[in-house]
C-alpha cells in the first residue's frame, strides 16, 4: 500500500531532488563556517587550521561595544516599521486596484509602481539625494510652496529613520502589490455573485470575501517577514547614511561592515551574523506557531 503510494509520487520526489541538492550544497554545507564565530579567525591559517579558540569572546566583545544598544534599537525600529508598512500598504493598494474597472489603467499603475523595484540602491540613492535635498530638491520645493519649512530628510537624525522606511516602501511596494493581486485572482467570482444576490455592498464584499480570501497569503508573508526584524536594509542605508545621522541611522549591518569586513575581523562578523540568524529563527518559529494557533494556517 505504502510502496504503491510512494511509487506514484516518485517522479515528484525526483523533481524535488535537484532543489534539495542545491540547498544542501549552498545552504547547509557552508554552515560549517559557523565555527568561525567562536574563533579569532585568521584566514592565512585555513578554515580548519590552528585557529585561536575564543569561545563566546566575539559575542561578549559585540555586547561591550559602546554603541551596541543604540544600534540594536535603530535596527529594530527601522526594520519593524518597514515590516508593518511593507505589509499594510501593498494590501490597501491591491484592494484599491482590484476595484478599478478599466484594465488599461490598472495595468499601467501596476507597472509604474513596480518599476523602482528594478533599480539598484546605488542608483536609487543618487536620485533620492537629489530630490530630497533641502535647497534644490523637488520634495522640499513642494513643501515650501505650501508654507512648510524645508526638511533635511537625509541629514536630520530625527527624520532619517522615517525617510528610510518611506523610500524603502516606495521602492518595493509595487512588488508585494502584485503578489496580493495574484492572490485576489484566486478568489472564486461565484462568491461575489452570491454576495451580490444576498444584497452585500462593495464594502461588505471586501470585508467578508476579499480579505478572508487573501488571509493565507497575508499570514504567510507576515510570518516570513518577522524573520527579518534584524534586517533593516544594508544596501539602502549604506548608500544614504552619513556621520551626522549615525545616532539614529547606524544599523547592525552597516556597523558590522565597518568593523568586521573593513578591519577583516571575520570572527566578529560571523558571530553577529549567527546572532541575527538565531533571532530570526526564533521569531519565525514563534510567528509560525501563532499563525497555526490563531489562524489555523500551516505552511507544511
Amino acid at each position: 500500500m505504502i510502496s504503491n503510494k510512494f511509487r506514484r509520487q516518485l517522479p515528484l520526489y525526483l523533481m524535488l531532488l535537484p532543489g534539495i541538492i542545491v540547498v544542501f550544497i549552498y545552504s547547509y554545507i557552508p554552515m560549517i563556517g559557523i565555527i568561525i564565530a567562536f574563533q579569532r579567525f585568521i584566514p592565512a591559517r585555513g578554515l580548519f587550521g590552528p585557529q585561536e579558540w575564543v569561545g563566546l569572546g566575539n559575542f561578549r566583545y559585540m555586547l561591550t561595544l559602546p554603541d551596541t544598544y543604540k544600534i540594536l534599537r535603530n535596527t529594530i525600529f527601522i526594520a519593524g516599521m518597514k515590516i508593518i508598512s511593507g505589509l499594510s500598504v501593498p494590501i490597501i493598494i491591491a484592494l484599491l486596484l482590484n476595484e478599478v474597472r478599466r484594465e488599461w489603467f490598472k495595468r499601467s499603475v501596476q507597472t509604474i509602481i513596480y518599476l523602482p523595484h528594478f533599480l539598484s540602491w546605488v542608483i536609487f540613492a543618487g536620485i533620492l539625494i537629489d530630490i530630497l535635498s533641502p535647497s534644490e530638491g523637488i520634495v522640499n520645493k513642494i513643501l515650501e510652496s505650501v508654507g512648510i519649512r524645508p526638511i533635511y530628510f537625509l541629514g536630520d537624525p530625527k527624520w532619517f529613520p522615517y525617510t528610510m522606511v518611506i523610500t524603502d516602501l516606495w521602492k518595493n511596494f509595487g512588488f508585494s502589490t502584485i503578489v496580493y493581486l495574484a492572490a485576489l485572482t484566486n478568489i472564486s467570482p461565484t462568491l461575489y455573485e452570491a454576495a451580490e444576490i444576498d444584497g452585500a455592498n462593495r464594502w461588505q464584499q471586501t470585508w467578508y470575501i476579499t480579505l478572508p480570501g487573501m488571509r493565507p497569503i497575508i499570514v504567510l508573508l507576515a510570518t516570513l517577514s518577522l524573520g527579518s526584524i534584524l534586517n533593516a536594509g544594508f544596501e539602502q542605508i549604506f548608500n544614504l547614511y552619513s556621520p551626522q545621522v549615525y545616532d539614529t541611522g547606524d544599523i547592525i549591518d552597516t556597523f558590522v561592515y565597518r568593523i568586521g569586513l573593513i578591519q577583516a575581523q571575520y570572527g566578529l562578523a560571523t558571530a553577529v551574523g549567527l546572532f541575527k540568524s538565531v533571532v530570526s529563527f526564533i521569531l519565525i518559529s514563534f510567528s509560525y506557531y501563532l499563525a497555526y494557533r490563531f489562524a489555523d494556517y500551516r505552511i507544511f
Binding site: Y61, L65, P66, D67, P243, Q244, Q263, A264, Q265
Partner: peptide, 21 residues
C-alpha cells in the same frame, strides 16, 4: 587597533561633522 579603531573613527567623524554644523 583592529577592535577599537572602527569605534574611534566613527566617534571622530560624528564629532567633526557635529562641530562644523
Amino acid at each position: 587597533m583592529i577592535e577599537k579603531l572602527p569605534v574611534l573613527s566613527k566617534l571622530q567623524s560624528e564629532t567633526f561633522t557635529k562641530i562644523i554644523k
